[in-house]
């Protein structure tokens, strides 16, 4: 457990959106598994927190949901990125990259920041 990290507050939404962007329509369980895999199993996702996050994104209009059939012929609810969601991902990604780039400059060893 010690080398696994909890999902940071506020980043889960972006992970979900990014996952949907990459994978296309997907159900909640799939999203959760995919996030774990993408993180190289370094992140623990409490699966229960995925659903309120999905609901919030849906209420904000970034994603849509629809009941459908899974690969194993099981009924499941599929989530899909909306156009607003796509725009939001692009913007958030940019913001996030900028933030990490700034932080990286502080963390990089031996470099003078002028």
């Amino acid at each position: 457990m010690s080398d696994k990290t909890e999902v940071w507050q506020g980043t889960l939404a972006l992970m979900i959106l990014k996952t949907l962007e990459a994978m296309g329509p997907l159900h909640g369980y799939g999203i959760a598994r995919r996030i774990e895999q993408t993180s190289g199993n370094l992140l623990v996702v409490n699966y229960g927190t995925i659903y309120p996050a999905l609901l919030k994104l849906e209420q904000e209009g970034y994603i849509d949901s629809e009941w459908g059939m899974s690969d194993n012929n099981r009924k499941a609810k599929y989530y899909r990125l909306t156009r607003a969601g796509r725009k939001h991902v692009a913007k958030e990604t940019q913001d996030w990259e900028q933030a990490t780039a700034i932080l990286a400059r502080f963390l990089a060893p031996g470099e003078e920041h002028s």
Binding site: H27, G28, Y29, G30, R33, Y47, Y51, S70, N72, R74, K75, A76, K77
Partner: peptide, 17 residues
């Protein structure tokens, strides 16, 4: 009801895995 269905299907998939 819908949430119960969704969580149930989630559990089923997880159990299968």
């Amino acid at each position: 009801r819908e949430l119960a269905d969704e969580l149930e299907s989630h559990l089923q998939m997880h159990v299968e895995d």
